[in-house]
């Protein structure tokens, strides 16, 4: 498991480096996630070397963002004074994303498989 954590920290560090190189456009942790995914896909890292550590971290992920959410204690005024905007954004954009993703995938999938079927 220590080996797994080493790999994860290594990719976290590499991610931070990439983040710096691209002018901090994307957070280092997200770059690290993409790099780890690529390294596994390209078989530079064996899945069994990281699986235990990765699962230990992702299984209890909700715990790690508890402290960050406590900040709401300080920011609740923002929540109260902007609740109309916050509610509008949450409802409208959530509906939009569900519809766009669902409809796009289904239509495109049907179209592509029909084309494939026609060629055969």
């Amino acid at each position: 498991m220590i080996k797994g954590f080493c790999y994860i920290m290594l990719f976290y560090v590499l991610g931070e480096m990439v983040s710096l190189l691209i002018g901090k456009l994307i957070p280092g942790s997200v770059c690290g996630m993409i790099l780890l995914f690529l390294a596994l896909t390209l078989k530079w890292v064996r899945p069994r070397d990281v699986d235990k550590a990765a699962s230990a971290l992702t299984r209890n992920m909700a715990l790690f963002f508890v402290p960050a959410s406590i900040g709401l204690m300080h920011e609740y005024k923002i929540l109260m004074s902007n609740w109309v905007v916050l509610l509008t954004v949450s409802v409208v954009t959530t509906l939009l994303v569900i519809v766009v993703v669902g409809v796009t995938e289904e239509r495109l999938d049907r179209k592509l498989s029909r084309r494939k079927g026609g060629a055969a």
């Binding site: 942790s29 996630m33 780890l36 899945p47 990765a54 992702t58 790690f64 508890v66």
Partner: peptide, 20 residues
């Protein structure tokens, strides 16, 4: 609680494995 907050970063990196 900074010790717990810190683990947020590595857990995002670990999502790369879940994605794989």
């Amino acid at each position: 609680s900074s010790f717990i907050s810190f683990l947020l970063g590595p857990s995002v990196v670990a999502l790369g494995y879940a994605l794989y």
